[in-house]
Design a binder for these strands. Structure first.
Length: 282
DNA sequence: TGTAACAGGTACGGACCTTG
DNA sequence: CAAGGTCCGTACCTGTTACA
């Protein structure tokens, strides 16, 4: 059995003694090593052959000769990251049921998936790893930015960088919850958190016709309506006999495409000139 | 087979305006 | 205070899947 293990160790160069940690007499494996192992398993295995998370865990256990059942969540994170970082031409469909599930990050808040994979992908030398503190604080991570050629220029500096934004296959808007708290778990029943920068306060684009009225290329919808009403009052565009009616001037006619409209219909007509801004359009 | 966890769907709240 | 209309984040509910 030992010979087989040694042979296997020789075949698997990623198994490095540098990554093994002796903790309270037990041989443990670092997260970096697990990340490497996951990648190796995925690379060596036929995607169609690996049908479950347990399959990967078992293969990894076989490679490392350790019980990794307690690391299943972390391994799942790594699989998720690898699949997104290295999309395959025919990715296994829901093999791991880990299509960007932000709660996994909550399940292992002490792990920064970004950290684990970044350290791995950048071939951090073992002597650079801090085994005493395998979980560096986020500030430490920011002090070691990736090389310039790997940085994403589209990332605005003003954006808080708690987690790298993964754009691959992220079509689902609700999945963009990497920095969004998980209300299902954290928010107790009855504590509704309304308002904030999103939702109604979300900044929307303004059509060129409407820009002539509100004066800004992008405003929250509520602000657009407010500006529109300011414009209407400023130019006395309300019907004196029925202030609900709005008499369109040239600028408003371009927007509403009518000479006269109702204030209740105004919002409906306004919607045509309010453009949803893509988050990545900056 | 039962339980737990997750994913997807649905409904609500809120700003803005004026009038009855 | 309700009406009318817009949008979307959030909370809640239900169905599905996985594991023991």
């Amino acid at each position: 059995e030992r010979e087989r293990e040694s042979e296997r160790a020789e075949r698997e160069p990623f198994v490095s003694p540098f990554f093994l940690v002796i903790y309270e007499g037990n041989v443990m494996v670092s997260d970096q090593e697990i990340a490497k192992g996951v990648e190796a398993v995925l690379r060596q295995s036929d995607p169609n052959a690996v049908t479950s998370l347990n399959g990967v865990v078992q293969q990894l256990e076989a490679k490392l000769g350790l019980d990794l059942s307690h690391k299943a969540g972390f391994i799942r994170d790594q699989i998720n990251l690898l699949l997104r970082s290295h999309p395959q031409p025919h990715p296994p469909k829901d093999h791991f049921a880990i299509q960007h599930q932000p709660q996994f990050q909550n399940s292992h808040p002490q792990f920064s998936p970004h950290f684990a994979l970044q350290n791995h992908l950048h071939h951090q030398r073992p002597e650079e790893l801090n085994f005493r503190s395998p979980l560096p604080p986020p500030q430490q991570l920011q002090t070691q930015p990736p090389p310039l050629h790997l940085q994403q220029p589209s990332q605005p500096q003003a954006q808080p960088p708690p987690v790298i934004k993964v754009e691959a296959n992220d079509q689902n808007a609700t999945s963009n919850a990497s920095e969004m708290p998980k209300p299902k778990e954290s928010a107790p029943a009855g504590t509704k958190r309304r308002g904030g920068p999103g939702g109604l306060n979300k900044v929307c684009g303004v059509s060129t016709e409407l820009q002539a009225i509100v004066g800004e290329p992008a405003l929250p919808r509520t602000e657009i309506v407010k500006q529109l009403w300011a414009y209407i009052r400023k130019n006395n565009l309300q019907d004196p006999s029925n202030k609900r009616k709005i008499i369109c001037d040239d600028a408003l006619r371009l927007v509403f495409e009518t000479d006269c409209t109702d204030m209740f219909k105004m919002n409906k007509l306004l919607a045509k000139h309010i453009i949803t801004l893509e988050p990545t359009s900056m």
